[in-house]
Design a protein around this nucleic acid. Structure first.
Lengths: 228, 228
DNA sequence: CGCGGCTTTGATGTTCATCAAGTAAAGTGG
DNA sequence: CCACTTTACTTGATGAACATCAAAGCCGCG
């Protein structure tokens, strides 16, 4: 946990503190703490009280939720600038979702009361915040609808392309989640996720060894994602 | 289209203009128009430019979206106070969704620029707005996740209970949507929706004639919704 | 070393989509 | 107002997609 007042240099500052005055930034700085989490560590527990306004500085996380039957559902993934941690912050007093680090992740937590105080007196700041929240939730809703339209193969293709293009910007990457987590994300069983991946390998669409994945036939993968 | 300045009496005012001064309300009033839509009429076209801030005064609407394959997906339903029309308003310049009246519906449209102008200078107002947006999207996301966890029967039970409890507050009601629309909402085929409804009738869980529906065995229906 | 979790494949059964066909209801033009 | 067309509703038969159950190999960890 660090508390140095170096927010002026923070890469994320421009995004949603863009309109904040030096005074405001100073206030944020004095009320923030940074935390680092290892792969697999839980950052936010579903049901816990929302005390801080949290955003990602670096790393990768998943948002998930426990169903009444005990099975987990993964709602979405987020990297810095996705601001998923904003969800619920203004509509609920407790978190609806669990947030887990999928990689070494650094977050910045600002005392929520301070943010709210600024928001109340600074419409420009609040509006910027709202735009971020809105963008993040829009993305989640649209992505869920996309997945829902596809069949098993289409969903797997979608997920692989999502990580390759959106998260890693590379056709070769290390998958940050297990087969079971893919299943929890796309709403299918682990076995069928594995079967489909194996099939993609057999058809020379993908190469993989464990979590090391490489897309061999991107065109076909895209076609499967869209029409499959 | 009406333009009388009677916003002081508007039932919805308290909800999100709660913190607005008399001046602000006057400004809103002068820049608003009311429209009435019949059952089936489209209120907002997907892809059209967002010029107004729109909210429901009365009635019932559905939010939907055309998939790339031409099939429609229903995202959610909304009655007054649900503020679904807020979606995208601050994150996009065009609507991502189509909004259709399912019943005689009255909306109030306020020139978006005016709202934004107020939001910029009035943090309290903006914060109230953000809370509403956040609540509305949270509800949509959670509901979609719920539906996704269930099988065909569970989804049908969920939808029936949703209309009975959330929309109509009555175990006897007139279904405002077609069987096909139920299918588009829960992501199953029309035939299977019908089959399941027929089965529920045979098992004395539901009584219905066309769109007139009555829940006969609520306990069982709830159980199917949760565990089915 | 042994345990538990993740991965993989196969066999089997259930659930659901698709196709087909017919009835009812509702809108449309002469 | 009636023939006509279209759209909604309904049921059955069939097959495809997917879940479930079972078993075994692999790997990391205490």
């Amino acid at each position: 946990m660090k508390n140095e007042c170096n927010c002026e240099l923070c890469k994320l500052r421009s995004l949603f503190f863009f309109h904040a005055s030096t005074d405001v930034i100073k206030l944020m700085c004095e009320n923030k703490t940074e935390h680092q989490y290892d792969k697999g560590e839980i950052i936010i527990y579903e049901g816990s009280e929302i005390k801080d306004f949290i955003y990602l500085k670096s790393g990768l996380v998943k948002l998930s939720r426990k169903g009444t039957d005990g099975k987990d559902q993964i709602i979405s993934f987020a990297k810095p600038f996705d601001f998923v941690s904003l969800l619920s912050v203004f509509s609920s007093s407790t978190y609806n979702y669990t947030v887990t680090a999928l990689d070494e992740t650094i977050i910045c937590a600002i005392v929520l009361e301070k943010i709210k105080a600024v928001a109340l007196i600074n419409g420009e700041f609040t509006m910027g915040l709202m735009t971020r929240v809105s963008e993040a939730t829009d993305k989640i809703i649209l992505n869920n609808l996309e997945i829902r339209r596809k069949n098993l193969k289409g969903r797997i293709a979608h997920v692989i392309l999502y990580f390759a293009h959106y998260i890693y910007n590379n056709n070769k990457f290390e998958l940050p989640i297990s087969r079971r987590e893919i299943a929890e994300y796309i709403g299918m069983t682990t076995e069928n996720v594995i079967r489909t991946l194996s099939e993609f390998r057999k058809d020379h669409i993908l190469k993989f060894d464990g979590k090391q994945i490489e897309i061999e036939n991107e065109k076909l993968l895209k076609s499967i994602s869209e029409h499959g």
